[in-house]
Design a protein around this nucleic acid. Sequence first.
DNA 1: TTATGTGCAAAACATTTGCAGGAGT
DNA 2: ACTCCTGCAAATGTTTTGCACATAA
Lengths: 138, 138
Amino acid sequence: MQELTSMRLTTQRQIILEELLKVTSHPTANEVYDMVRKRLPRIGLGTVYRNLELMAETGMILKLEVGGTQKRFDATVTPHYHVRCMECGKVDDIKMPVQEGINEIAAQACHYQILGHHIEFTGLCSNCARSQQKTSIN
Amino acid sequence: MQELTSMRLTTQRQIILEELLKVTSHPTANEVYDMVRKRLPRIGLGTVYRNLELMAETGMILKLEVGGTQKRFDATVTPHYHVRCMECGKVDDIKMPVQEGINEIAAQACHYQILGHHIEFTGLCSNCARSQQKTSIN
DNA sequence: TTATGTGCAAAACATTTGCAGGAGT
DNA sequence: ACTCCTGCAAATGTTTTGCACATAA
């Protein structure tokens, strides 16, 4: 695991973290790149990937391995769950209590050493639910 | 959504489904391709992708949007959860009751129309847990 | 017979990596 | 100074797609 102590405080890292803290959405690496590029036009996409990965390893941010084709990143590091819109792919936090007991239940049901879990709810965001109604007339 | 009625029963589709039913693992598209190719050497990878996608749409199989870089496929369509080994990426089923109430809890905690959920446990499979012990002496 | 499916190859994405030069400590 | 980091571009890995031919119904 990456150690915090050996990690230099570069402009790139500061700005990536700042931009991630600004939003409540869960941007993809490419979206972070776009956000950061407004302030640092010469930053490379590779740098963004490298640093998001590094920050996720140190626990500064969360890397969400949710459905869809791209990984997403989240500056809220306290444990919580997510909803993903099946239509547009948007991901939001869910403010509900973490299900404490289920790791133990799972551990008894398999031969893995269970270290954690993540729940991803799927559904339709308010926008997509609305337009779904309109188009479902055919 | 793809309709079952308009889906032709081709050799390729039969064999892909047969091979998927044979295993309890959760193969990636490429692993399915390798399995199927032993019986149908001229099948194209594109055909495998197209058909896995189609079968997932009709509900014949499950497409697992779990962590890691590749999608995985599962012939067990009854609702169940998964464990993924953080070390080797292996995915297994967990035989534990589906948490019935949590969709309602989530629905009250956000503005989505909740349609379902999936729980992914993370940990170490028995193989990796063992070798972890050996290497952790440094 | 004809719409649907297939093999093949190219394209499209998402992510990682090698390297020469740049910057934090 | 001496690492560690960055930008750039090329490479890699996964999935999708266009097209001419094949085939199930």
